[in-house]
Amino acid sequence: MVQRHDASTLHFDFRLEIGGVLVSWAVPKGPSLDPRDRRLAAMTEDHPLDYADFEGRVGDGYGAGTVVVWDTGTFENITEKQGEPVSAEDALAAGHLKFVLHGQKLTGAFAITHTKMGGDDKFWLLVKIDDDGADRRRKPALTQPESVLSGRTNEDFED
């Protein structure tokens, strides 16, 4: 699932359910359907599964701002090493996870790869793999701000 989070800056919280938690990355520009785009993804703390449908206002302090569920669906791990399947947990530990999204806004294969940009361990790159879900023209992160659950936008939750 992906939450659109308007905190100190607008970003997208990209979350995959792995090992009973939502493994999470903050993606400043949002996921892209264009395989030419490389999206910075800063790994954040894992979130509990019951956070997956949260929409509303996060109070003062860390993460303060508004949140909507921008996309939801399932994912299928397709990571392999030497032709053998690799578990999502092992792929994350190795720094490269390849998966297919079955979402309402995001579909098709993606990869997220660990990078040590600037010597910082939290940075990853999120990339759309060129397949039937790729679309170089459609920009859902820019043109579809509404929640897939409620139809509301972040602005609907502002004071």
Rank of each mutant, 00 (worst) to 15 (best):
19 G>A: 04
127 V>E: 09
65 G>Y: 02
114 H>Y: 10
46 D>W: 08
79 T>A: 01
110 F>Q: 01
56 G>F: 01
8 S>R: 11
39 R>P: 08
127 V>I: 13
137 R>F: 12
112 I>T: 11
26 A>G: 10
79 T>E: 01
33 L>H: 02
132 D>M: 00
66 T>I: 04
19 G>F: 02
37 D>A: 12
150 S>T: 15
4 R>K: 15
80 E>D: 00
58 V>G: 08
26 A>T: 10
42 A>R: 13
139 K>W: 06
121 D>H: 12
77 N>M: 00
43 M>A: 15
114 H>C: 09
25 W>E: 10
46 D>K: 13
59 G>Q: 14
150 S>P: 03
56 G>N: 04
72 T>V: 13
34 D>K: 10
93 A>K: 14
151 G>C: 05
58 V>C: 08
75 F>Q: 02
105 K>D: 02
76 E>H: 09
11 H>K: 08
152 R>K: 15
134 A>V: 03
122 K>F: 04
137 R>V: 14
51 Y>S: 11
24 S>A: 14
141 A>N: 12
94 A>W: 03
125 L>C: 05
110 F>R: 01
99 F>N: 00
86 V>Y: 03
141 A>V: 08
115 T>Q: 11
131 D>L: 02
16 L>F: 03
91 A>G: 01
131 D>M: 02
39 R>F: 04
152 R>D: 05
89 E>P: 05
141 A>G: 11
69 V>E: 07
52 A>S: 14
87 S>D: 03
62 Y>V: 15
110 F>N: 00
111 A>V: 11
140 P>A: 08
